[in-house]
Design a binder for these strands. Sequence first.
DNA 1: GCTCGCTCTGCTCATATGAGCAGTGATGCC
DNA 2: GGCATCACTGCTCATATGAGCAGAGCGAGC
Lengths: 316, 316
Amino acid sequence: MRVDEIDELLSIRAAELYYEENKTQDEIGQALRLTRWKVGRLLAQAKQRGFIRIEILHPRARRLPIERRLREERGLADAIVVSTAGVHSPEELQERTAQAAADYLTALRPVPRTLGVSWGRTLFEISQHLRNGWATGVNVVQINGGVSLNRRPGTAAATAVGIAQKGGGSATLLPSPAILERLETKEAIEADRVVAGVIELARSADAYLFSAGAADHSSVHVESGYLSTADVDLLVQKGAVGDVVGRYIDSDGNIVDPALDARTVGLTLDELRGAPLAIAVMSGSTKHAVADAVVRSGLCTVLVTDEATALHLLDG
Amino acid sequence: MRVDEIDELLSIRAAELYYEENKTQDEIGQALRLTRWKVGRLLAQAKQRGFIRIEILHPRARRLPIERRLREERGLADAIVVSTAGVHSPEELQERTAQAAADYLTALRPVPRTLGVSWGRTLFEISQHLRNGWATGVNVVQINGGVSLNRRPGTAAATAVGIAQKGGGSATLLPSPAILERLETKEAIEADRVVAGVIELARSADAYLFSAGAADHSSVHVESGYLSTADVDLLVQKGAVGDVVGRYIDSDGNIVDPALDARTVGLTLDELRGAPLAIAVMSGSTKHAVADAVVRSGLCTVLVTDEATALHLLDG
DNA sequence: GCTCGCTCTGCTCATATGAGCAGTGATGCC
DNA sequence: GGCATCACTGCTCATATGAGCAGAGCGAGC
């Protein structure tokens, strides 16, 4: 038995006594016939070699070292990473992430006077996790079109209104479909005084809060009837990994289909990229690819996500 | 938000900074605007409420608190429980347990002069994990019959011989089948001078080392041809949960089929129960029921097992 | 409205732990 | 064989942490 093998075993024995039996290093020293300094060094070694895993088991637990890596290695202004420890379903993950986003918004300083928001399942859940009085006097403005065409009408509006009401402010809705069938209609809608005014207000927002959708058949665009499953398949063929504020991007963050993009109402991606504070909230394995594109192409300054997605961004 | 809810969240934030960022309690106090004593109390609370999980990730890691519970709540003289953290296959679990048994034997004081052993997959693996010179002059004697009939001939012998050779001693084999077809044959064999002498030696052993088999078709008795799958099914119907030294017992540790037992060669269970040192080694979910019967009915004084089996014994 | 008792807070003091440092023994190199 | 090097050991000292305690704040009960 080699010496470092003996030391490895001793460090495990020491760790058992230290962490499971709450003995002092001195007591362990007596038990294993070592000096307390040797015990201290064995424990340090065990930690350093990764034999000791400390996990914080709580729905609200975050992974600060991963957040730091995201800031440092991906140049984000801030990152919130929720722990996946003990998560059993994608819904639970989504909820944790939405809760973390709500917490982040609530703690945000300075409080934004005008907050631009997108809509979708994630945004709706964030709105539900915000507490009454999370802010005082936050005005919310929709940054992309989204009057639902068929199913679940009004969730887009309910999201914006919910965030605004709980924040003691009012919501300004963008009264337009997400994607128009004809370019002329889209241009006409954008020329409309009310719509133009809302978009202008959206451009002036202090902060943006949005999610991204995966490019697959479960997309809200399919569910809402703006795109058919065939449309999505075509986009995927062209390299789409997902959409941000209704605009489909490839893995480099470039618009996949400029013609489709021209028929999409709302803030452009470059306007989003120019924002001083753009908070992207994405979780779940289906969003790994979009999340990567969003972060790489600088679409957000702040990322709220789960541990697995974060590690995907960092380690590929 | 209730006060204890705020405290819960604060304790999670504190735990993140303490365990993941290696901040001192004082630094955390400054960051969260708390006194360092409050931080200390929050951390203690987080531990106490079970939000902090510390795991030792190593094949040789043991679970000392569970071992203690087994000693105290099940009256065992000693218990060795290996961690299941990071185990991916039943084979790996079996290996860890065998390794632990080998370690236990090596560290055993006083060193037994005569060691009685059973045979089977577990025992064979233990023999392989023992190091040359694990003891000096240990004589090994088989405590139950087991000349394999068809497959893998000689593993029973190889086990005993291996343990003896590595321990600087010699092995005494029990030259008899495990189970005889007729009672008369069994009695004749036991009357044989050599066989009687081996059994007498087995009775005088200082310590016994044995495993138990589950009562299912994968049993070594089926594999070796002593029992048919139909025999096993019948035993299960009569309440058998497994076998110890070839003798099938129910969940209370009683012999299931006295007629079969009478045809089984080797130490009786009561002889085993009377031993001052009887080390049972069992691991894997298939052995939960037998392990329970063995421990409850006092067949062993020392138990070597895995975490999951141990928890099954303790919490049902 | 007052008092009793309880919990929680911020402290002092004792203890446990980590950083750094000089001596020691082993190892390899000439 | 002698010497330089280096990892490792056991220490001193500074710091971090936990135990225990007095006082403050708060609520229940009279």
